[in-house]
Design a protein around this nucleic acid. Structure first.
Lengths: 250, 250
DNA sequence: CCGGCATTTATTGTATCCAATTTGACTGGT
DNA sequence: ACCAGTCAAATTGGATACAATAAATGCCGG
């Protein structure tokens, strides 16, 4: 029997493994630091979905009191990284498959538009940064350095979001990149070494450089479609699933 | 001379005018209540952009301590309703014209997609609610009841967001509706009695009912374009403006 | 009259205390 | 074994006190 419904990591042991590097040499830790660290840890799957995040524990880890932690948790909740329910411990959020599909659809729409808008507007410096990341992504893939590969891939999309002429859409894209990254980590097919899609990013870069908005949009949409197909999102409709299971035993 | 740069309302007098109706008969006030009240007050322009929102003052108004207010302000900041900077009083946010255009463009994209996705999926109950709001919107317009008109108009778009099959896009739309409402209040052309666009909502309703996604998307896009044209967003490029002004005196 | 400087006030940042709630474990009965 | 009820521990919710910072005021010399 596989306990799939209830996730209930004990946590404490995880903390001791320095999941959250509280390196903060100079000044003291602010709520923003906690937000960044937790976000990163969730992204890197060092804090799996469902993980309990008690305020006191976080406070001890970062050497601050609950006040600061509480603000950080509120912000993380608004970023959809943690789930904060009244009178309950905050937990790392675990989006279900439906939300995963919807998140991908949203990102396809937004990032496609951003790419189309951005094409031809980036100055050389940014384009070089993207090219650099793209190269290093490929190298990391060949070297089997998954963490580095993810980091470079994320950086590319992040650059797009950051330099979108429409900053409102850019901010929305930043949020969506984070959320898709989380669900990719969650639902990546077992035994799949990596989610590297050869050539996608270089192709995008070319269209961005040439100012081909429609082409860039297409690149993004195909890229995200391919990415989503690497996930194991189970059956189309969860309600049918439920019916089938209950129907047998009734 | 018009002092357009610095906004610095004194506030205190405004509070006394019961800007925020702290009617809360039964239970005590939660941070969510404060969020709703402030959001509404901003929307209704009872709290103009730039208004200072000191934590203690809000606490007194709502009869709670700063802890609760703080959480509310953090949430309002994440909704882009207030501006929260370190060691400074929170203020009602005042988006500039550029952000206004970008917000409209973002909403056009997102709400268009939501309308297209939603068309044909709404059950009769929801469609009737939309029809009802549409009728009452028109009545309120004829009766010159601006507050009611806005309320009904908002409700229509809100229903769309709430019942979007894609809940991620729906939530994003909710945010964008709020933000556009704020900037509409801010930049509405002087001497314009209302932003009522006859026939737009009934037409949308028809396409939603018939399941014409492309039609619904078009309705939304045209509706938002018309709305934006009712605003006074000044010249296209602010940097050119600056140059012209400085050039004369140099 | 004005501009800089010190002081005072207003306001936020953080820690801590106590109450309220939830969670989990233990016990006793069936 | 199993279930319910009860109690203890863990945890959040809210208020308050104090420190740190920014804003406002007033003073004084030019």
């Amino acid at each position: 029997m596989i306990p799939v419904g209830k996730v209930n990591k004990t946590m404490s042991n995880v903390w001791q493994q320095e999941v959250l590097a509280e390196i903060k040499p100079g000044g003291r830790v602010s709520d923003g630091d906690i937000v960044r660290q937790v976000r990163r840890a969730v992204l890197m799957q060092r804090l799996p979905p469902g993980t309990r995040l008690p305020e006191v524990t976080l406070g001890e880890v970062f050497g601050v009191s609950r006040s600061v932690v509480r603000k950080a948790l509120t912000r993380l909740a608004s970023e959809h990284v943690v789930d904060q329910r009244p009178n309950q411990v905050a937990r790392v959020r675990a989006p279900d498959v439906d939300e995963t599909r919807e998140t991908f659809a949203a990102r396809r729409l937004v990032e496609g538009e951003v790419a189309a808008l951005t094409a031809g507007t980036l100055d050389k410096r940014i384009l070089l940064q993207i090219e650099d990341r793209s190269n290093r992504e490929r190298e990391a893939f060949l070297a089997n350095d998954e963490a580095a590969r993810i980091e470079h891939s994320l950086a590319i999309h992040h650059l797009l979001a950051e330099h979108s002429p429409n900053r409102v859409l850019g901010a929305m894209l930043t949020d969506l990149i984070l959320r898709t990254s989380i669900v990719i980590a969650l639902y990546k097919r077992q035994g799949l070494a990596s989610c590297y899609l050869e050539g996608d990013h270089p192709r995008l870069l070319e269209h961005l450089t040439k100012g081909d908005g429609a082409g860039a949009r297409g690149d993004i949409e195909r890229h995200l479609d391919s990415l989503q197909e690497l996930l194991d999102l189970g059956p189309r409709d969860s309600s049918i699933d439920l019916k089938a299971i209950l129907g047998g035993s009734a």
